[in-house]
Design a protein around this nucleic acid. Structure first.
Lengths: 121, 121
DNA sequence: TGATTTGCTATCATATAGGATAGTACTATC
DNA sequence: GATAGTACTATCCTATATGATAGCAAATCA
């Protein structure tokens, strides 16, 4: 009957969106050209702005600044300011940031198999 | 350290890039607003162009067509044309496409914990 | 006859990501 | 006094993603 079908369909669509949302959230956190390299640079230990910049070829100050803010807003990294010399600001990974490790590793494994499949051999 | 397998020489820029590449590949495959909903729609069974379109609110023919092509190029889906009436074209998920399931599940799990951490509670 | 369906493609417009370049406050050093 | 280093911010520009709208071939339906 029409009403039943319609409701069932709605339920399915909503249920799907609800399932997809967290996946999108996770993808968004890693989205863009620089967030991954920044996280990885920091995974080796706390670093200053210029240190990160030097380790990531091609990144501009503007993008580094912007992405660091995003990562901090998502609580993946922490910013520490030392009232010193010329400014000293240190960034480091949080526990929450480290928890991304497993996801990144899964992405890497799948990416490798994909590369073999598509690009060949 | 935490984000990647620890190795002595892992610290070099080249080695890092090599490790990051497959992760970027995987992210790119899922990138954009529509690929995930399309894949999920097809994960319930083969569907025609218009069927997918009807199941995904807001998608335009242009974007659906474009994303289907990308997904097919990445061998995540297959396109089958039936020489019939008004055109009949059926899309379905490949084994390779199904292999994304594990990655998506990891993204979903992390996304849920992220949501709890950032938005809620 | 004219309208409708299907699986697209083409054209035009806008929003956003990202790059290039310059500048700033403050201090230390030459 | 001039220069350099640090951690940014501001401005301007381009490329890409996405959206809105229209059209099209061929057959079927009213």
């Amino acid at each position: 009957m029409a009403l039943f079908e319609k409701r069932a369909e709605l339920h399915t669509t909503q249920e799907c969106s609800r399932q997809i949302m967290p996946v999108r959230d996770a993808l968004e956190v890693l989205n863009g050209r620089w967030k991954l390299p920044i996280l990885i640079a920091l995974s080796f230990g706390a670093k200053r702005f210029k240190e990160i910049s030097r380790e990531i070829p091609g990144i501009t100050d503007k993008m580094l600044s912007k992405e660091l803010k995003m990562l901090e807003a998502n609580q993946l990294i922490i910013r520490q300011v030392f009232d010193d010399f010329p400014p000293v600001v240190e960034y480091s990974i949080t526990k929450h940031g480290e928890s991304l490790g497993k996801v990144i590793e899964e992405l890497r494994i799948w990416g490798l198999s994909h590369r073999k499949k598509i690009i060949g051999k």
